[in-house]
Design a protein around this nucleic acid. Structure first.
Lengths: 146, 146
DNA sequence: AATAATGATTACAAAGCGGAACGATTGTCA
DNA sequence: TGACAATCGTTCCGCTTTGTAATCATTATT
């Protein structure tokens, strides 16, 4: 059943990747936008950690989003070593489109379930996730498997 | 909740990968052993398709397992173009160890649930998987996301 | 004031990826 | 029967992705 979980998880992740490709986003990019929406102003190293990538790789990764005008690097006056990353207004706009895609994806994925079962499944998964020590909203699948 | 599914799936897959690393196996390698245990004698192209990798990449992939004496390429007398892949006795032996790891992984993953809930979760996931058109036992996560 | 530690960045080598092309074998069809 | 297309396994190759180590600027430590 853990196999089922991995199988379905990969399937859901794959379908989601296809959908957001229409917005010209990869799953990792969407993950960063989501992280910035929830907690703005964090340093690149922190964010890289949450996304599971080495800091060296985060730099060109953030560059692309900055060039597209979706995120912004602001200097931290208290500590000029680190940047504070923020969403631009364009970034917030794209985040809105992202949410729409996410809810459509949600519906399509759980099509087989009644609303009650849907809720039931969510409750069970949350219990498992919590016991496993997963941080809500942080997706460990962006990084390779070690 | 589709996000939760992907998150948990990646987590489960990652932990499983760590476990079987002790057997010097990657998830894809374990997947091939499992496929061969269920249906021996299939061609490389078929197996590559199930694992979601191009045939060109399957060759060195199978080479490693053959060098370790876990699988065997037998010529098909009826059609000498294709090989028939089989598990060796050593391969069966390792498969046994693999099953033990899998059940331990299963237990550890669903620790938070009672036996009834465990069964309940499995039933829900199977319903979703079937409706989504997933082939039982075939893990789409070995291939990159398209 | 000197040295260590931290964040962002660059440089670079290694591995992984899939498509195209090739030889061997088999199917098709006139 | 013979020519041609199709299939399987394999090799080749360019491209991308990956993580580690070195570098520079800034801050903490002593």
């Amino acid at each position: 059943m853990a196999f089922l979980l991995a199988q379905l998880g990969a399937h859901a992740a794959g379908r989601f990747a296809e959908r957001i490709a229409g917005l010209d986003l990869t799953p990792a990019q969407a993950g960063l936008l989501r992280l910035l929406a929830r907690t703005p102003g964090r340093s690149q190293r922190e964010l890289a950690g949450d996304l599971g990538m080495p800091p060296s790789r985060f730099v060109p990764f953030a560059d692309k989003l900055e060039e597209r005008g979706l995120i912004e690097r602001r200097r931290n006056p208290d500590d000029r070593r680190l940047y504070a990353l923020h969403l631009t207004p364009e970034g917030f706009g794209l985040l809105g489109a992202l949410r729409e895609v996410a809810t459509a994806h949600e519906e399509q994925t759980c099509q087989a379930l009644s609303p009650e079962e849907h809720e039931q499944l969510g409750a069970l998964l949350r219990r498992v996730a919590e016991q496993q020590g997963l941080t809500p909203g942080v997706h460990p699948g962006y990084r390779s498997v070690r």
